[in-house]
Simulated scan of single mutants.
Amino acid sequence: MNSQALPSRGSTLELFGEIESELQQVEEAIEASLATQDGLVGEVSTYLLRAGGKRIRPALLLLASRFPGRRLGDLIPVAVAVELIHMATLVHDDVVDDSQLRRGRPTVNVRWSNPVSVLTGDYLFARAFSLLAQTGDNRVVRIMADVVFEMSRGELMQIATAFDTGQTEADYFERIARKTGYLIAESCRLGALVAGASPEQVQALYEYGLAVGISFQIADDLLDFTGAAERVGKPVGGDLKQGILTLPVLHALAHSGRAAELHRVIAARSIDDEALARVRTILEEAGSLQYARSRAEEYLARAYAQLEKVPELASRHTLKRIAEFVVNRQF
């Protein structure tokens, strides 16, 4: 699988070069928004900030806004809010998934406790929506409220379908659109919207972001089978062990000559490292890993096509390179 991967071009720092100073303003604004004299809240917030993150969503928002006449001051608070919402979902996800590591560091629920994690996520959500409300633009509040609603639905779908071998690919794509795709899509929409782009331009950038988000999630799901824990920053194979059936598994269930064996492994609901190795072999033999990669690249092509609809956007070339980066860096 790795031998067929396209090379990643550059790094996030290089790709974000044209908005480096703007991202620095976003970073400073994130720190300012979380600054507090409250002991525990400040301690956890500092811990999350030091964990870093590539700030892909605020970067996409800023890049999608690069139309003539945009006002950066209108965009920074929205970019900060998008990142805080992303951080909140990660903190909550780690509780739901009982995750031990995030970006190579102990999760908040491990470092402190589940109650602290839940309340920290709530705090981040509240802070984000406070910033959105301060813009005076009800459109951005409504859009992000809808995103949180859909992400919650995606998480509930994932819980409800744990270890369910009756899922379809359509179910999978609906779930990952809600869990991952919509936040990236709406980050791009918000950038164009706040910048005053036309409805057609706004829609094209939304569709670009949705395609990138879906492609990214497929790639991330592949990495759960093909990556190394040191590189991923969390244990590999964790999705299947939790009963989360991703695209490679669903493909093998439908097409592998060893589908019955795979079904039994999943139905046992207790997947150890030995069983995980068997599953990996089944996926390789069925071509399921390559199939999933081809679907990721299909969505990547859709993202590229949307960018052709916004010739006025100064950052089209960068957005194309970022789309390739966020997908291919995963393999």
Rank of each mutant, 00 (worst) to 15 (best):
F67L: 06
V41Y: 14
G287K: 02
I218S: 01
L48W: 05
F331S: 07
V95H: 09
A296P: 02
E14P: 02
R269K: 14
Y299D: 02
Y206H: 14
T318D: 10
L240W: 07
E27L: 09
V108H: 02
E230A: 11
T135K: 04
F325Y: 15
T120I: 13
A185G: 05
T168R: 05
T89W: 08
G69E: 01
A275C: 06
F325Q: 06
L240A: 04
D94T: 03
D146P: 04
A185S: 07
A79I: 07
E20L: 12
Q306V: 00
R9T: 14
R321F: 08
T36S: 14
V265D: 03
A79E: 01
D93I: 08
S315D: 05
A145R: 11
L247M: 05
Y47A: 09
L253S: 08
C188G: 01
V91R: 12
A32G: 11
E43H: 12
A267K: 11
Y206C: 07
W112F: 11
E18A: 14
F225D: 05
R189F: 12
E18F: 09
R264A: 14
F16C: 09
I214G: 05
G213L: 09
A314K: 11
L48E: 08
I282Q: 05
L183K: 05
T135W: 01
H92K: 12
I271L: 04
S315H: 07
L289C: 07
D272W: 05
D220A: 10
I176C: 09
K241Y: 05
Q217R: 03
F216V: 01
E22N: 10
V279E: 06
Y47V: 06
E284A: 12
G196H: 11
Q167Y: 06
R321D: 15
G181W: 08
Q217A: 04
R111T: 09
I30Q: 05
A296M: 02
Q203A: 15
V80D: 03
A35W: 13
R102I: 02
A177D: 13
V327I: 10
H86G: 01
H317K: 15
A32P: 09
D171R: 05
R9D: 13
T107R: 02
I271V: 13
S99L: 01
A229P: 00
F173W: 10
L210G: 03
R153Y: 09
T46D: 15
R50N: 15
T180Q: 04
E174T: 15
G136F: 08
A305R: 07
L313K: 09
A177H: 14
Y123P: 00
